[in-house]
Design a protein around this nucleic acid. Structure first.
Lengths: 150, 150
DNA sequence: ATTTCATATTAGACATAATCTAATTGCTAT
DNA sequence: ATAGCAATTAGATTATGTCTAATATGAAAT
């Protein structure tokens, strides 16, 4: 997406396209590897204008609230962020913490009869296990590849 | 589950049944409301013997590793814990942060052909939105109850 | 019962992640 | 130009979780 497109995108969501906010959004679109807030802060500050840590957090919060960015909370580690493109879920490696997009699986939506009075905004599937790099050589083909989904 | 059952349960997982560890496990089984580590620490210390904060965290980590307890990471808030009973997923309220068990929905497991060399340990569905207490009066019956699952 | 040794516990220091504050700057509309 | 609101900033602060080094405990061997 070009600069104009990002600007449009932000403004359609009611957010001003400030240089710092633009940088965060742009960085997230170019780096699909689910960076942490600290990585984003570092990344955008390699360019001008410099942004503060508070602003990076503020802008991430605004972008998440606007629904343009997804935040993935991690057990014991810093949260990770990604620009919402095509809808997808996440695979999180138990060992190295890497987050991979899952586009090879879809979750059928719960029937509304089971939701009671709740308002559902979003469903996310988190699949946990070992990524291809962390799988021990001989294990990838054996029976431990079991899914314990409900 | 009675005291003997909890002891058995811990030992079957290779964990010694120490008073502090027993307290944590017992507390989690009696309090299904997904307490935070701080709440668990407070809760078990209303009884004897007293446990330290470090021990509470150590024991939670051990119990999670042993697969007896589930940790649910929260965006911007403290992680929450629950004893794994029957398998279930979680509904997290955007507004009040309450975590509710979802037992009214099942996730079909991904076909193994789509997993590549990954080893999948667990699939968890996180449904986000507004819980029944946080739903505005007039909104509960309207069209905003849309599920945006992939 | 005593010794031995790995495991568990403890208090508090430390590390990290994220938020808050108060002052300042920069848009935007008039 | 200027008024008023939104955004930014540096740094302090809070919240959450981890580490360290000393001590205690429990189980097995003797």
């Amino acid at each position: 997406m070009d600069a104009q497109g990002i600007k449009q995108c932000l403004e359609d969501s009611g957010l001003r396209c400030t240089p710092q906010r633009y940088s965060v959004m742009s960085f997230l679109m170019e780096h699909a590897g689910h960076p942490t807030a600290a990585e984003i802060f570092e990344g955008v500050n390699r360019l001008d204008p410099r942004s503060s840590r508070a602003t990076t957090y503020n802008n991430l919060r605004d972008l998440v609230q606007a629904g343009l960015v997804r935040e993935v909370a991690m057990e014991g580690r810093a949260a990770r962020f990604d620009a919402k493109g095509a809808q997808h879920h996440h695979f999180i490696c138990d060992k190295c913490g890497k987050v991979e997009d899952i586009d090879w699986y879809t979750v059928p939506q719960p029937g509304s009869e089971s939701l009671g009075k709740r308002i559902v905004r979003e469903c996310e599937l988190i699949v946990r296990g070992l990524c291809t790099k962390c799988v021990p050589r001989r294990a990838s083909q054996n029976s431990s590849r079991v899914v314990s989904a409900v």
